[in-house]
């Protein structure tokens, strides 16, 4: 869907490239997360995809077409690509309703289609339309403004979304909630998304695919599991942090390591110590600690399918991270 081929960007007046020979591909319906330290070129990549910045080398393709083709009008291109900018950038002189309706109005949608669309979008991002629609940005909190920013980018239902730290300006608890809500939305929307963050946890949680950047270069890319279980170098290891194993547990479903049995052990029953098969292994660990048990029962819906023990978890950790240790 989106493809970058050896893309370079050297800003005028600088010698060090902001983006250096970057190639990767984002498949349709996937979330591709760019992660890396400040200044590593994440924003610049997004801005090249919608042509706010022209690359100095390489090619960018959307649905097989080069975005730099003469026939592509950058303004029209951008109306087809939702963009959530890092600084939010709501228009302070316009109401929330007008802000969200910006692209549909540019596309000359009929007014009677815009009103319900705005209402729907505000509800979708968890805002009360009657309450906020006629307010101005300065009357909203940072988190609410970010939601409006996301709603604005979604307004014309673009197949592609570029999201630059869309949940950056909120505290970790609200961020977690916004992430959950967004993933739930994405299940229905199936958009192709480029998502920027400098939070590796957010990347692991949101990404189907992760691109790790450092100093303008692509250091490693792959699924979260691939990156966690096989970090390419010291930089990636540092980025992932020392709790790599725990993160892996978050990514593994309990059903993958369950010891199948029909009999419910007594201790599990007594301590009421159960989890669901689709819960991450992390949850098994938490439940064990909470219930003070070293065995946990696993259910698939109502039916019991087996157990996970403390030993099983340790073995699993050794298996996935031990090979390259």
């Amino acid at each position: 869907m989106i493809k970058l081929d050896k893309v370079d960007k050297v800003f005028p007046g600088t010698t060090v490239p902001a983006v250096d020979q970057v190639s990767f591909q984002v498949d349709e319906g996937n979330i591709c997360v760019f992660v890396g330290p400040s200044g590593c070129g994440k924003t610049t990549i997004l801005r090249m995809i919608n042509r706010l910045v022209e690359p100095t080398g390489g090619d960018i393709y959307i649905k097989g077409q080069k975005v730099s083709d003469k026939g592509v009008n950058p303004d029209y291109l951008r109306r087809e690509i939702g963009y959530v900018i890092q600084q939010i950038g709501l228009m302070p002189h316009r109401t929330i309703e007008q802000n969200v309706a910006l692209v549909p109005r540019l596309l000359k949608w009929p007014e009677d289609k815009i009103k319900p669309r705005v209402k729907h979008l505000l509800e979708m991002v968890g805002l009360e339309p009657d309450e906020v629609a006629q307010k101005y940005p300065h009357q909203l909190s940072g988190g609410m403004m970010q939601r409006v920013g996301v709603a604005r980018a979604l307004a014309a239902d673009p197949p592609i979304m570029l999201m630059d730290e869309p949940f950056g300006a909120v505290d970790p608890i609200v961020r977690g909630r916004l992430q959950d809500e967004f993933l739930r939305l994405q299940k229905e929307m199936k958009k192709t998304i480029c998502f920027v963050t400098h939070d590796i946890n957010e990347a692991i949680k949101m990404g189907d695919h992760i691109v790790i950047m450092n100093k303008g270069r692509l250091v490693q890319h792959g699924t979260p599991m691939e990156i966690l279980s096989n970090p390419a170098d010291e930089f990636v290891k540092d980025l992932i942090g020392s709790d790599r194993e725990i993160k892996l547990l978050e990514l593994t479903r309990s059903e993958e390591i369950v010891e199948h049995t029909d009999e419910i052990p007594e201790v599990v029953n007594k301590k009421d110590c159960f989890i669901q098969a689709i819960d991450p292994v992390q949850r098994a660990l938490e439940t064990m600690m909470k219930k003070d048990s070293d065995l946990v029962g696993v259910r698939d819906g109502e039916s019991f399918i087996g157990t996970i023990s403390w030993e099983d978890i340790k073995k699993h950790i050794n298996r996935i991270s031990g090979d390259q240790a």
Partner: peptide, 13 residues
Amino acid sequence: WPIIEAGRGMGMS
């Protein structure tokens, strides 16, 4: 500039 950037990013001429 973020406001201008947003405008450009939304495809305003």
